Simulated scan of single mutants.
Amino acid sequence: MIFKRKPKTDYVEFGQKQPHWFRRHKKLAIILGFVSVLLIAGGTVTALYVVNKKPTPPPAPANVVKPVPQPVPVKYFSPLTGLQVADQAATTQAVTAVMIENSPIARPQSGLKEAGVVFEAIAEGGITRFAVLYQQEKPALIGPVRSVRTYYVDWIAAFNASIAHVGGSLAALNEVRNGSYRDIDQFFNGSYYYRSTDRYAPHNVYTTSQKLDALNASKGYTTSTFTGFTRKDSVASKTPNATQISVTISSAPYNSSYTYNSATNTYDRSVGGAPHLDREKGQISPRVVVVMTIPERTVFEDGNREQIDAIGSGKAVIFQDGTAQEVTWTKKSKTEQIAFTDASGNDVPLARGQTWLTSVPLTGGVSWQ
């Protein structure tokens, strides 16, 4: 019998049993096909999602609250003393100058400690007198009030101030009554002054800040516009070179001295060899002491009168913060303020606070250590 081998074919007839290898590869093919379907389906879904997905808007910017800049506080300073004051209105507050006596029988005076600026000079016969200026300062009692001289008027004129006095020399009265000044002479305004009963005339004329304010208001003298001294903050020197000051004006009862007080950075004043006291407020201690050398001579007007050249230029020494500085003083006209310059011509500011300016003749002088 002859057996013939069936020819190889690439298929299996229906119903016939597939070979083992075919069944194994067929299962793998099915698995791979299923995985392919899943991958295709997943890719399709992902593609559709990506296509149909709306872009996510960027996050809204954070609501950043910008800090509101705080306004820089405005500071106002008195043109008289350089000290800080409450508001702008205070800088134009009316200034009043009062002539106060300094003979020994007039001491202790009232109102000196609270003054903003004090001018000291010889009035007659070597006896000194003060032109005392107030702006924010309001002492309850001021005096004894005495007469005025022309050089005090020259100093006061630069402050646009009212001038309180009891008469004066003929030349001074002709000047102060010429219509260019705020004259509040006691002679014509007696109800705003009074005579005390504890002192003898003519050393007993007094007034008050309240009375002077009322007198100024009645005449419309409610503001003062002027240029004060150049000012600076007061800073005590670490190496003070002027702790004892001696000022020779005329004679022992009127010569003055100062002791530097490091605790307060001021100068405790003495006159006639004793502490200079305010009757109500005690020790007088200016922040700044200026000693100006000014030519002086005796002239005959309505009698023998002192003549001091307040307008001009000369030597001066400024004592402040425990130090002494030699400078030049210059006053160009009645209404212009005194300027102080160093050897290079630079302006020298004065510390804020009470300023005491003394005029000494060429025969006088000042020393310190």
Rank of each mutant, 00 (worst) to 15 (best):
I184F: 00
T150P: 06
G168Y: 00
Y134L: 08
A131G: 12
N174G: 14
I184C: 01
G126L: 03
S196M: 11
E124T: 09
P144G: 05
V132A: 12
L133W: 06
G190E: 13
Y193G: 01
Y192M: 10
A131P: 06
W155C: 05
W155Y: 15
A140F: 07
R182W: 01
Y193I: 02
E124V: 03
G190F: 03
Q186D: 13
G125T: 02
G125F: 01
V148M: 02
Y192E: 12
V132N: 05
Y152P: 10
E124L: 06
Q186I: 01
F159D: 02
K138T: 15
D154S: 12
L173N: 13
V153I: 15
A161M: 07
D185Q: 02
T128Q: 05
Y134V: 08
D154V: 02
Y194W: 13
F188P: 11
A131D: 06
F130C: 03
L141Q: 15
A131H: 09
A140G: 14
V176R: 04
G168W: 02
A164G: 13
H165S: 09
G179R: 00
S162Y: 00
R182Q: 10
G143T: 11
G179M: 04
L133A: 05
I163H: 11
Y151L: 08
D198S: 14
I184E: 04
F187G: 12
N189H: 14
A131M: 13
S191E: 15
G143F: 06
T128M: 04
F159G: 04
T197H: 12
V132Q: 05
P139H: 03
G143L: 06
P139N: 10
W155V: 04
V153P: 00
G125D: 11
L173W: 01
D183F: 08
G125H: 07
Y194I: 01
H165G: 08
L141E: 15
D183L: 04
D154W: 10
L141M: 14
I156R: 00
A171D: 14
Y152G: 02
R146M: 01
A172Y: 02
A140K: 14
Q136H: 12
A131T: 07
E137F: 03
G179P: 12
E175G: 09
I156Y: 01
T128W: 04
V145R: 00
S147V: 00
A157P: 05
P144W: 09
I142S: 13
N160T: 07
N178H: 06
F188Y: 15
R182T: 00
A140M: 10
T128N: 05
Q186F: 09
F188L: 13
Y193M: 05
S180F: 10
H165Q: 13
T128F: 05
R195Y: 07
S180L: 14
T128K: 03
D154E: 14
F187K: 12
E175H: 11
P139S: 11
A157C: 10
L173S: 10
I142R: 03
S169D: 00
S196K: 09
N160Y: 04
A161E: 06
R146G: 03
H165E: 11
I184W: 02
A164H: 06
A172R: 00
V148L: 10
F187A: 14
S180N: 15
F188I: 10
G167L: 02
G167S: 05
Q135P: 09
L133N: 02
V166D: 11
D154C: 08
I163E: 07
S180H: 13
V132R: 00
I156K: 00
